[in-house]
Every structure is written in C-alpha cells, then in structure tokens.
C-alpha cells in the first residue's frame, strides 16, 4: 500500500513532539490535528499512527467514539445549531429544520459550493440566550427562524 502523503505544519509537528511522550496523549493530539485541518483526514491519522507508533485501528476507535472529532471535511462556514435542552425548549429544532431547508443539505453533507455544513450540537454554553446558533466562531442568540436567511446571506459572499 502506498504511503499517503500529507503535510503537517511546523507548529503541529512541534506540538506532537511536545506531547509524544506524555501518557494518554492521543485525544490531545487529535484535537490539535482537527484544529489544523478542520477535521481528521485519513492520511493525517495514518501519519500520526506512524509517528507515535500506535495502531491505526486504535486511533480510529477513539476518533469514532467522540462526537467532537470529524472524519469528513466540513463546509467553509460551519453552522452549529444548539439542540441542548434549553435551546430545544425555546424552539431550536425549528431552526435546524429551516436551516437544512434553506441550504438544502442534511446530516454531514456540505452545500455544492462547499460553503456550508451544519452541525447539531449540544449546549454552546449560552443557554440564557436560547435558542442559539453559531457560525464559525460567531454566536447568534435569541434567534427566530425569520432571521435565518439574512444571517446566512452574510456568509455567502465570503
């Protein structure tokens, strides 16, 4: 099997170097890789497996156990809609349905232009502002579904 190629940045390599010998480091390393690529590409997992000498199966076992880790590439803008209890009670399921229908995508899909993907998440920690959604790192609180087209439009142009 040909060895897959993927570049790791200098900072990422430094981080791996720093954590390589620490016990129980795998989750921290995966977080750092996801920070770099936005998800965990298979090639990156393979490369990590070689660097730290851990079987790929074990790495995938961990990746797939945790909701936070993604194995598919997300859209350029990630829309996270909170389905935590506080937001659910204040109508966030409607926000999710409406956003899916505006963008015409479901689940892990990304829009054809690669601009958007949607994550249903649990509690963004701003329950006082429920219902809440987050695009990239910007939080929108007390959102009503009528605002969605306008909010999404802001991200279409860039």
């Amino acid at each position: 099997m040909p060895v897959a190629q993927i570049e790791f940045s200098g900072e990422l390599m430094d981080f791996i170097e720093e954590w390589k010998e620490k016990p129980g480091n795998l989750i921290m390393l995966l977080h750092r890789i996801q920070e770099e690529f936005g998800y965990i590409p298979r090639e990156a997992a393979e490369k990590l497996s070689r660097i730290i000498g851990l079987p790929l199966a074990k790495i995938y076992g961990v990746i797939t156990f945790y909701h936070f880790f993604k194995t598919t590439k997300p859209g350029k803008h990630r829309i996270s809609i909170c389905l935590g209890t506080a937001c659910y009670l204040r109508g966030s399921q409607d926000l999710l349905d409406e956003t899916q229908s505006i963008l015409n995508i479901k689940g892990d899909e990304i829009t054809d232009d690669g601009l958007f993907s949607i994550d249903a998440v649990r509690c963004l920690g701003c329950c006082g502002l429920a219902p809440v959604l987050m695009i990239d790192n910007e939080i929108y609180g007390k959102v009503v579904k009528e605002q969605l087209p306008e909010i999404i439009a802001k991200y279409r142009s860039n």
């Binding site: 016990p23 795998l26 909701h67």
Partner: peptide
Amino acid sequence: RLGAGAFVCGEETALLRSLEGN
C-alpha cells in the same frame, strides 16, 4: 486535558479511561 464531546465521559470511570487516551 480536553474532552471530546461524549456525555458518558462525565461518569468518573469513563472519564479516567478517556484521560488515559482511550
């Protein structure tokens, strides 16, 4: 050490396994 979005990891024995990188 960071969690990675698994509710069960709030349970103490699961949390410890997660801390160990599992």
